[in-house]
């Protein structure tokens, strides 16, 4: 008991030094070494995703076949070896970053737009609207996400845009529920009532008063959501339903390499590693953000 109070007193003193929330979060985040490594990796991944297309030519370096050079083991010339068409696996993995990352980011953006607005509405209005929205979410979460993805991909045709949309829709209910749960405790706060008395409209209250105060869990969900979206996309591509070949999407490369796995294992190892490192970085960053946003949760 004594200690707790001292801690409380100590944090009370800290509040005197006024810091913006972002600075405070950053200060907490910096203390976590694995989260910092993850942040560094995410920056590198984003950088690669944006700039790889300026270093390599899609036609010449990515899809052009060099049958004479097929199945070369990893070497100084071909770091990750070459595939069954003699294409350089390293180049393809690097170039493929943009597919996985853009699918992850766009899908999460779609989930956010759909899920967060539904969650806000459900949490803010409550009652029948809330019930309806939650039931709707229940229907979608009742179907395993990968099967839902398969169905959507089949219905709308196989392309990267549909993949983004499919994954975005599949994961929306999660954002809806997270947002609603975060909004619920905020909904009855007095400052919301105060804003209403001051004549702020529902939309204004929702976006200017409720959402900012419910933001922390959504931010964490977004970071980790990119990770699961990338994982789901690679799964769909692996099943042959994601990004169409010959695009060097990691899941598709895995699926292609699988045929030759017995003798040329490196064809499956490197794309898989790329997926894992990317997903791991986003997951670790999400973990770090959660701890930084809510130091109470961290021990």
């Amino acid at each position: 008991m004594a200690r707790k109070n001292k801690k409380a007193a100590a944090s009370g003193q800290k509040e005197y030094k006024k810091r913006s929330l972002a600075a405070e979060v950053w200060r907490n985040y910096k203390k976590n070494p694995s989260a910092m490594i993850a942040l560094f990796l995410v920056i590198v991944i984003v950088f690669v995703a944006i700039f790889a297309q300026f270093f390599y030519d899609f036609k010449k370096d990515i899809v052009k076949q060099h049958v004479k050079e097929k199945f070369q083991k990893p070497s100084a010339e071909h770091w990750f070896g070459t595939d069954n068409y003699g294409r350089d696996v390293f180049t393809r993995v690097i170039y493929g970053t943009k597919y996985s990352l853009s699918v992850g980011v766009v899908a999460v953006a779609i989930s956010c737009i759909v899920g967060v607005s539904l969650g806000l509405i459900a949490g803010y209005y409550g009652g029948v609207i809330e019930d309806l929205i939650l039931r709707f979410c229940e229907v979608f979460t009742g179907i395993p996400s990968i099967l839902m993805g398969v169905a959507l991909m089949t219905a709308f045709g196989q392309s990267i845009g549909v993949l983004m949309l499919a994954i975005g829709l599949v994961y929306s209910p999660m954002y809806c529920r997270t947002t609603r749960a975060a909004v619920l405790p905020v909904r009855d706060q007095e400052y919301i009532e105060a804003a209403r008395v001051a004549g702020v409209g529902d939309l204004g209250i929702m976006f200017n008063h409720v959402l900012p105060n419910a933001l922390s869990p959504i931010i964490v969900q977004v970071t980790m959501g990119i990770a699961s979206a990338i994982l789901c996309a690679s799964g769909l591509s692996f099943l042959g339903l994601g990004v169409p070949i010959p695009m060097p999407e990691w899941g598709a490369m895995l699926s292609e390499g699988r045929e030759f796995m017995r003798d040329y294992m490196y064809l499956t190892i490197f794309p898989g590693l790329a997926i894992m490192i990317t997903v791991l970085s986003f997951n670790l960053m999400g973990d770090g953000l959660r701890d930084a946003l809510d130091p109470k949760l961290k021990q």
Partner: peptide, 10 residues
């Protein structure tokens, strides 16, 4: 963080 099907392949 690992794609499960990849682990399966390994």
């Amino acid at each position: 963080s690992m794609p499960a099907f990849w682990l399966g392949l390994l």
